[in-house]
Simulated assay, not measured.
Amino acid sequence: MILAGGSARRLGGRDKPAITVGGIPLLDRVRAACAHATRVIVVGPEQQGGPVAALAAGLRQLDEAAGTAGAAVAAGPTGAGAGPGVGAVALLAADLPLLTAGALDALAGALPDHDGALYVDGTGRQQLLCGMWRIGALRERLAGADPDGMPLRRLVAGLRIAELTNQAEPWFDCDTPEQLAEAERRLRA
């Protein structure tokens, strides 16, 4: 599940998933990292020329009506978007230009002994929008809860979480012009 909403205030309100880094839109970079996924769900508003216009066949779009990750999880991978036989879901921001299939494989490899796996940055901060979760664990957390106002941090609180590190920083996101420039620099290197 790729979360492609948000106001992108620090980028002047631009359609962030459509911004190109290294000549490729941010959303397309994240989708490419999800090449092994059974299904890809993009959550975000329909915008002219934005994520919906760029969706390829086989992707599903959910409107970002509720505006929180908890609501997106309830509507997507734990609800109607799950599909049969899907046991885990990656929750990813749409602005992760350094994310790779290998980074997602590492998260999946940590799931057998945990409810979820995510990356932590150099300061030890959990990168919640660069993680993978067991759908059963998320469903249990959502049972009887109102997901509409539930932040992701509260949704996963108390779950057994594997914390991974990766020097390539697959969680590196682009919220500012400076971060976009840094992503360009890293991809050129």
Rank of each mutant, 00 (worst) to 15 (best):
D28I: 00
D28S: 12
D28R: 04
R29N: 08
R29C: 03
V30K: 14
V30D: 10
V30M: 07
V30Q: 11
A32D: 12
A32T: 11
A32M: 01
A33N: 10
C34S: 13
C34L: 12
C34F: 06
C34E: 08
A35H: 12
A35L: 10
A35M: 08
H36I: 02
A37S: 10
A37K: 03
T38H: 11
R39Y: 00
R39E: 01
V40F: 01
V40N: 07
V40E: 13
I41A: 02
I41V: 15
V42E: 01
E46I: 04
E46F: 05
E46N: 01
Q47H: 06
Q48E: 06
G49W: 01
G50S: 02
P51R: 02
V52E: 03
V52K: 04
V52R: 08
V52A: 15
A53P: 09
A53W: 03
A54H: 06
A54F: 00
A54I: 00
A54R: 15
L55S: 01
A56H: 07
A56L: 13
A57S: 13
A57G: 09
G58C: 04
G58N: 13
L59G: 01
L59C: 12
R60P: 00
R60I: 13
Q61H: 15
Q61C: 12
Q61E: 08
Q61N: 06
L62E: 13
L62M: 08
L62F: 11
L62N: 06
D63H: 07
E64Q: 08
A65R: 12
A66P: 00
A66V: 09
A66R: 11
A66L: 08
G67M: 03
G67H: 03
G67D: 02
T68Q: 11
T68P: 10
G70P: 09
G70K: 08
A71K: 07
A72N: 13
A74V: 12
A74D: 14
A75N: 11
A75F: 05
G76P: 07
P77V: 15
T78Q: 12
G79E: 14
